[in-house]
Design a protein around this nucleic acid. Structure first.
Lengths: 241, 241
DNA sequence: CCAAAAGTGTTCTGCGTACACCCATGG
DNA sequence: CCATGGGTGTACGCAGAACACTTTTGG
């Protein structure tokens, strides 16, 4: 019987590469939150036949870099983003997902504090934040990539405090609650939400208040990273909202 | 400024493939459960410098197949497995993970009803079930791949009833409980475990009993797939043990 | 003083958890 | 009748969910 298993050995390496070599890319769905809705960072695609459609940021993976390095390079060089939260979502491998050649892509999503981020756009002039709901009819299979990433973010935020990566260092509890409501598409009870935060020691009262609002200013808080680390270590942490 | 973004267009496709083409493989961690412990299906590696070490089943992805097709091909051709549960785990992309060339691999795990599976080994003579604890010092980075897959299974089984894929169609409640205890490495309370199953309508009493035991025979149950589907549809399903 | 949003407590219900004894069968 | 595992119910505490009014500030 034919042995379908291919062994990579010196003698047939060149032949193997010719036969099996394919292109691998990373695509990163960058989420931002502007205090009213969840946004995705996109670019106008300039590859036929998708010219004019939106695309998320991505690039081919170089032969000398890991996925992690590739995605960091894309975030840094193409969006000026450093040290931001990111997570692998899944692999997209349809044969026809790229019109020019077979390109396997690994999707990631990232979370950006949109207030602290000015669009860095050295390479091109059309980086743009769009609403999740606008992420339709995108280039390649990027609509599916955005959908899968959004779903992953929704799942993740229910069990880990990743949402803080979308807010400024100092935030009000209402801002935090609205973030959850927007991402999950649900409404939450203010008192229950706050009690849960307090029970978990997840936020620290900074003793400061808002100073630019025309009504009673809200207290400002920050995420209690140390407390979260401790809770993770001893026993399990639950943040299912 | 240098634009690091590579566009794949007809004119430079060949050059791009030469520069960026790399090898992609799938590796599948196949879990089985033999009524006492969780097992992994491995093979003796025959590639230097790992000859004699264990490896999980994997293969290069062909240019004309998706990941899904590749993993199904590996499961079918190399282990005779068809239509089994599987899930993508994550990408492994260290530059030195394969000694011969840069190979990016996508790890999957699968669940097999070990009782109903006779080792099909047409291609080679050394398919073997080993204990999780024996999955050390494996070929390539397969120890890390097994660890990550095991962790994923542990996470998944807490929220979805995937464990039934490891048991025969008919099983006793004690067998089910032991499965959970073995996979999670914890002990569970018998009465609480059973109450939760009943509350969720997850199992159906078949009205049959064991007939090969030298003590009071236990009732046999099967997984209630329809009930699970209904529960998933209306509202959320929780199976956190 | 009015508008706007901030902030705060209680009750009820259901679920997780801890826990121990009798039952049915084969040998 | 004995050994072996099979099977069952209760009490407690905590956490989620529902729910409405008072407070503080700016204008």
């Amino acid at each position: 019987m034919y042995d379908p298993h291919i062994e990579i050995v010196e003698s047939n390496l060149k032949e193997i590469k010719k036969t099996f070599g394919c292109l691998v890319s990373v695509d990163c769905v960058i989420f931002g939150y502007d205090h009213s809705s969840l946004k995705v960072l996109v670019i106008n695609c300039n590859q036929e036949p998708f010219v004019g459609k939106y695309s998320v940021l991505g690039d081919l993976v170089h032969t000398h870099e890991t996925m992690d390095e590739a995605i960091k390079r894309v975030l840094s060089q193409r969006a000026g983003l450093e040290d931001i939260y990111m997570e692998e979502v899944k692999v997209f491998s349809s044969l026809d997902r790229h019109p020019m050649d077979r390109v396997i892509t690994i999707a990631y999503y990232s979370l950006v504090k949109i207030d602290e981020y000015k669009l860095v756009d050295a390479q091109n002039k059309d980086l743009k934040w769009i609403e999740i709901s606008e992420a339709k009819d995108m280039a390649f299979d990027h609509e599916a990539i955005v959908k899968a990433s959004h779903k992953r973010l929704q799942d993740r935020i229910k069990e880990k405090p990743v949402g803080f990566n979308l807010l400024p260092e100092k935030f009000t509890l209402n801002q935090l609650q609205l973030l959850y409501e927007n991402i999950l598409g649900i409404t939450l009870d203010k008192r229950n939400f706050r009690r849960k935060l307090n029970n978990n020691n997840l936020v620290i009262d900074l003793g400061e208040v808002q100073d630019d609002v025309s009504h009673r200013p809200a207290k400002l808080y920050k995420f209690d990273f140390d407390s979260y680390q401790k809770m993770k270590k001893r026993g399990q942490f639950s943040f299912i909202i």
